[in-house]
Design a binder for these strands. Sequence first.
DNA 1: ACCTGAACACCGTTCAAGT
DNA 2: ACCTGAACACCGTTCAAGT
Lengths: 210, 210
Amino acid sequence: MVEGTPAEQSRPRRGRGRPRALDEQRIVDVALRLAAGGRFEQVSMRTLAQELDVPVMTLYTYVPNKAALGQLVLDQMLRQVRVPEPDEGPWEQRLLELQRNARRVLGRHGVMSLSRYGAGGGEAARLAEGVLSILRSGGFSDEEAARAFTALYTFMIGQIEVDGVDGLLGGRVEQALEDVGPTTSMSRDALFEFGLTSLIEGLKRQRAAD
Amino acid sequence: MVEGTPAEQSRPRRGRGRPRALDEQRIVDVALRLAAGGRFEQVSMRTLAQELDVPVMTLYTYVPNKAALGQLVLDQMLRQVRVPEPDEGPWEQRLLELQRNARRVLGRHGVMSLSRYGAGGGEAARLAEGVLSILRSGGFSDEEAARAFTALYTFMIGQIEVDGVDGLLGGRVEQALEDVGPTTSMSRDALFEFGLTSLIEGLKRQRAAD
DNA sequence: ACCTGAACACCGTTCAAGT
DNA sequence: ACCTGAACACCGTTCAAGT
C-alpha cells in the first residue's frame, strides 16, 4: 500500500503534482499527542488542523471523518501493547502482565472512551487473541476462555474509564470515592492489581468447577 | 426546602408573581426520558427546552448548567436502585442482587457515562454504603470491604459502558466482540452474571487468604 | 425574582470552487 | 487528485434587557 516511487523520493521539492502536505500517520501521531492527558473526544478537528498548520478541511483529504480518525488513533495505541510470550511465566502472570501493559499504554496517551470506537483495526483482534491463547494455555476450553475474556474485557473497560476520570480530575478519584464512603490504604495501581488478581482467581475457580 | 405555602397552593392561577413555569423535578424527569435508549450527553439543552415547551435560557433559572443537571439526573436514576435487606439471603446473593438492580435501572433509562458525573448526590453514597455493609456482613474487614468495593465498582462501570455501546449499536456488541475473536453461547445477561459471580468468588478467596 | 432574545465562542461536516 | 474557503446545522452558555 506504500506508494512512494523512487522518483518521487529523489525530488520531493520539484513535484509538479503538489507534494502531499500531510499523511495519515502524521495526523494520527499528532492527534495522539494532543489527546494525551485528556480524551480524544476533546481534541477538535480544528485544533488538530491548527497544530498541523493546515486548514481544517485538508484533514478530510486523508480521513473520512472524526470517528474514523478515532479508530486509527485507537489502533495506534493498541499497537504498543505487548503480549507476553508463552515462556514468560505461568499463565496467570502473563495475563496480569498483558493487562498491566494495556493499562499503562492507554493511560500514557490520553484515555479515549475505548468502548466507543469499537474493534475497528486489527490490533484489538491481536490483543483479544493474545488473551484467549493465554487462557487456553491455562486450561480453559474455547467456551470458557470466551466467557473469561468478556469478564476481563469488562473489567478493563471499567478501569480505563475510571482512570480517565482520574486524569481529568487530576488524580482525585480517591477523593470522590471517599466522599461516597469506602477508604483504603491501597494506591490506585495496587487496587487495579488487586481487582484483576481477584477476578482471575475467580475465573480459575469457575473453570475448575465446570 | 419545600416552599409552597397553603396560600400559594389554594390559588395557583391568580398568582401575581408569575407562576413558575417549571420546576427542577420536571426538568430532571423529562431529561431522563429523553436520555432513554441513548446517552445523556446526547440530549441537548435546546432539545430539552423544546420538549418542555420553554425557551432554552429558561432552563438556566432552575439549573446552573448541564453538568449540574447531569448530576441531578444521575441521582434520580440511582434513587431507583433497591438495596436488598439483610434478611434476603446470603451476602453473595444480596450483593449480586444489588448489582443486578443497578444494571437494570441504569440500562432502562439511557445509560449515561456514569463515572463522568461523579458521586454528586446522596444516592451514590447510599448505594456504596449498601455494598459495604453487605461485604461486612460477609466477614470483610473495613479495609477488605473498601478494596472489594473498588473492584466491584470498576466492573460495574465497565459493564454499564459496554451496555451503553450495546444500546447505541442496537445490540451488536456481540458482533463486535466476535469480529475480534471470542464467541460464547451465553447471553449478555448471563455473561454479566458470570463475570460478577467470578469476581465475587475471587474476592472471597482473597479475604480468606488474608 | 423570574424570564428570555440575541449573541458569542465553539463543534463536525457538506458543498462548490480552486489548483 | 488534492486542496480549501464559505457556509450549514448544530452545541453550551454569557449578557443585557424585559416583566
